[in-house]
């Protein structure tokens, strides 16, 4: 293991990864024979049409769902069995992921309670809530917050544990355009400074192109990798300049083509 060279070390390695879901008669193959290597510190975006298996793949990466027995799935050289240390989810369904009896602050604390002293916890929770612009709502309960605010609480809960690996399932889907763009910049900045590996699912090509170091499009039933492209954008991203750059437009063009080709793919 060449563990010391942070840039090139692998975070994820999967070989011939297949996933079956459902019980009995209804059991179906959702993902088949997927090979993928994700280096540490990479910001990987996964695109694909609804129902293709993006959430399923993310849950397999996070150890919440098992792959088939002959699949190989390793994180930092170790087989993934159950949620790995240092990995944290931001779930697609925010309403079902916050504890309704806890305030925003107490929700964000959840991941820190076993590991961090009370004082250090308070500091990190406050910082995380500030990052998502919710410092004023720390003492509100989820049912007092809008959908977008609830999703930001979930995001803060993930950031507060200072994860090595962030698994995000359409985290910005419920947000308005302004908040969304601000959080994209913020997330990218946090990823750059913390050196976390991010696997980010989205429906939105522009969001993927803006955020990613690398983009994968899933396609087919069962799903496998359609295209796999590296971004040539500079590490620093900016909502105005990045989106005007030729690299951005070129990548956007390629990804759009790949995403729309799958719809006509069956015929020609």
């Amino acid at each position: 293991m060449t563990d010391s060279s942070g840039e090139s070390a692998l975070a994820f390695r999967c070989r011939a990864l297949s996933v079956d879901l459902g019980v009995g008669e209804a059991r179906r193959r959702i993902i088949e024979d997927l090979d993928l290597e994700v280096p540490r510190r990479q910001f990987l975006c996964i695109l694909g049409e609804s129902g293709v298996g993006k959430t399923t793949l993310l849950r397999v990466f996070g150890g919440l769902v098992d792959a088939t027995a002959d699949s190989v799935l390793e994180l930092n050289g170790e087989r993934v069995v159950g949620p790995p240390q240092g990995a944290v989810f931001v779930f697609q369904n925010y309403a079902a992921s916050l504890l309704p009896w806890r305030t925003a602050r107490r929700n964000v604390e959840l991941g820190l309670e076993a590991t961090t002293s009370k004082a250090a916890r308070q500091q990190r929770v406050t910082a995380a809530l500030r990052q998502v612009d919710l410092a004023d709502h720390a003492d509100d309960y989820p049912w007092q917050l809008s959908g977008g605010m609830q999703q930001r609480v979930q995001l803060a809960r993930a950031l507060a544990v200072e994860p090595d690996l962030l698994l995000m399932d359409e985290p910005f889907g419920a947000l308005d355009a302004m908040t969304r763009e601000n959080l994209q910049v913020e997330l990218r900045r946090i990823q750059q400074t913390s050196g976390a590996t991010v696997i980010f699912i989205t429906h939105d090509v522009d969001e993927a192109v803006f955020l990613a170091d690398r983009i994968i499009v899933l396609k087919g039933k069962p799903a496998s990798i359609g295209i796999d492209v590296m971004s040539r954008l500079p590490a620093e991203r900016d909502q105005v300049r990045t989106k005007e750059s030729p690299e951005y437009l070129e990548l956007r063009h390629r990804v759009y083509e790949a995403v729309s080709r799958r719809s006509g793919g069956g015929k020609e």
Partner: peptide, 10 residues
């Protein structure tokens, strides 16, 4: 969903 949150935070 809540059980999954508990699992993912170990």
């Amino acid at each position: 969903g809540l059980l999954e949150v508990a699992r993912s935070f170990r």
